[in-house]
């Protein structure tokens, strides 16, 4: 695990209209680590991720990626820090009119400077990495949910970003496919040394992947636990944390 800090969130407040979702939260992520944002439904996990990738402008506070502020001007911000990140959205967000291969080729053609035949080789490598080498010619509507996640992952890492944001990568998948996705994430983290930030509430994935995690809470609108998932489960005295990990309702 690297020591260098790659993401810093400082006193971030997330608000939609009059509803405050997160208030004054701060944390940092280190290079090459797998960092997990956990919490119940409606605790603000996805909102936090959207703020971290610059899709939303914070009500207060700042987000820095590699020392550069990403939260300064919302989606219209400078593209430089955005080139360093890749995002897998919850629904994969593949473009339906393009084949799987064309979806992966899109950022490579746009930003890598490679010629078209080299782009094709690169797309093949990316699809092989996620196990979809035989599905390049399929449309997103013709493949399963797990394959869509894999294709979305291949597109997210098309330009070898320093940081990958994955929103619920195993949601809606059967246990075997979810476990395959978890293994793939570990493989990418190890092979390409990518920092990976995962938003999830899937306990199996949390323990399979997480080196460090924070837990968000709807009531306190902030972080109620921080550390390794196993430590949070076994030693955290907060009843909300215990309930989450033991799957017991209040």
């Amino acid at each position: 695990m690297g020591d260098k800090e790659i993401i810093r969130v400082e006193k971030l407040t997330v608000r939609y209209g009059d509803d405050t979702i997160l208030s004054d939260i701060s944390f940092s992520v280190r290079q090459k680590e797998i960092f997990i944002i956990v919490g119940g439904s409606g605790s603000g996990k996805t909102s936090l991720m959207r703020h971290m990738v610059g899709l939303e402008t914070p009500a207060a506070g700042r987000v820095y990626i590699g020392g550069q502020e990403i939260s300064a001007s919302g989606p219209e911000m400078a593209t430089e820090p955005l080139r360093r990140i890749g995002v897998l959205f919850q629904g994969s967000a593949l473009l339906g009119s393009m084949t799987v291969a064309e979806n992966v080729a899109l950022p490579i053609e746009g930003f890598s400077g490679l010629e078209s035949d080299a782009v094709a080789s690169m797309v093949n490598i990316k699809l092989t990495l996620v196990g979809l080498e035989c599905y390049g010619a399929y449309l997103p509507s013709e493949i399963s949910g797990g394959m869509k996640k894999r294709a979305g992952l291949a597109r997210a890492m098309a330009l070898n970003p320093d940081i990958l944001f994955l929103d619920e990568p195993s949601a809606g998948l059967d246990p075997v496919t979810a476990s395959e996705i978890d293994n793939l994430i570990l493989h990418i983290n190890k092979t390409l040394e990518t920092t990976i930030i995962i938003v999830t509430h899937d306990l199996d994935s949390i323990f399979a992947l997480g080196q460090k995690a924070i837990m968000l809470d709807k009531e306190s609108k902030g972080i109620i636990a921080e550390g390794s998932p196993a430590h949070m489960r076994d030693h955290n005295p907060d009843p909300a944390v215990r309930r989450f990990f033991s799957r017991k309702p209040a």
Partner: peptide, 19 residues
Amino acid sequence: GRILSLVDFGQPECSVPSR
């Protein structure tokens, strides 16, 4: 070596498949 293991060096030249 870990990176090179991602690639099948025996594969023929290809193009991005489209409809």
